[in-house]
Nucleic acid binder design. Structure first.
Lengths: 170, 170
DNA sequence: ATTTGTGCAAAGCCTTTGCATGGGT
DNA sequence: ACCCATGCAAAGGCTTTGCACAAAT
């Protein structure tokens, strides 16, 4: 029961095909095309598993004039496709759209530190059980959920204590 | 245990002062002013307890030229103050900011029907317990949370079945 | 050859803000 | 009299879109 909460970093799951392969399949079944931009973006996105928004992604991509430059419009369009294809998940935080890897990673929820703005992940089977119990009581057919716990992470608790001590000395 | 989920409509709690009184207090302690617009808006907002966004609120307020007209800028500014004052809560849904009554109402979470776009409320003590348990494992100091269960409400399930049956007949 | 994708710039949507005027205290 | 609040219009931040050209099938 208490082991149902997993604060450890999430591991990639064993999945039969890579994100690249899965996206190819997605494109082919809909008569869409494989382009250099799409290939480049999928590699860029899956090269690290942080949370990011469109702007952050654009910042770490080649700038205009450099090789492999991709316009922002295409980045936005492609991020949507990745979500459609089940490669990424997206949600809203502080007004912007945040993306995270979905394909190949276990379902999880988030803790959000309102001081350092960092997102932490956790998994809890009990939460999913509770969700389904609530939904069934309400006659709902569940398709998903979004749980974000807001607060202050341990690092920030420490830092804010230090800061407060300093202030108290003045 | 099973009684910890409350799908029934939320009731107003007994609170010593009205939203109006509480807002007056809030304004006075900060040297802010009571204006006709603020009074009018607080009445408009607390006259029904639905979820709404700025646009929906503006739509049901008097139009430009009519009595008690309030500019959109003031509506936006005032909604923020209501949140600061603890009268309203706000959260993001599908990109827009949704407001709901907070002062005088018990804490709760939401089910969101992605078909009819309606929000339903539920309360669950177990969810709060789980939240605190997760947070403490992660060294977090909790300040709040946001849980939204997405899916299809019972009405929409019925409707979509009917629709499907019709389609099948064609 | 056909049809989708891309880049560019413009527009959209929701919300905030600068500024001059109006109104509480 | 002071200074906060309002209305207006303009600007902001993020995202989408129309269009002409480029590229994939």
């Amino acid at each position: 029961m208490s082991s149902s909460i997993t604060p450890e970093p999430l591991q990639r799951l064993n999945v039969s095909s890579s994100p690249q392969e899965r996206f190819e399949e997605y494109l082919q079944t809909r008569g869409l095309r494989q382009t250099s931009q799409r290939k480049f973006l999928i590699d860029a996105v899956f090269s690290e598993h942080e949370h990011f928004d469109a702007d952050e992604l654009i910042d770490r991509l080649p700038a205009k004039g450099e090789d492999n430059y991709v316009s922002s419009a295409t980045v936005y369009r492609t991020l949507r496709e990745f979500v459609d294809a089940g490669l990424l998940k997206s949600f809203q935080l502080d007004g912007r759209t945040v993306y995270e890897l979905d394909y190949g990673y276990p379902a999880h929820d988030h803790l959000y530190c309102t001081r350092c703005k960092e997102l932490f992940e956790f998994t809890s089977e009990a939460l999913v059980g509770l969700r389904d119990q609530v939904a069934s009581k309400m006659g709902f057919r569940v398709s998903g959920h979004r749980m974000i716990i807001q607060g202050m992470c341990s690092d920030c608790i420490t830092k804010s204590r230090r800061k407060k001590r300093k202030q108290d000395l003045v």
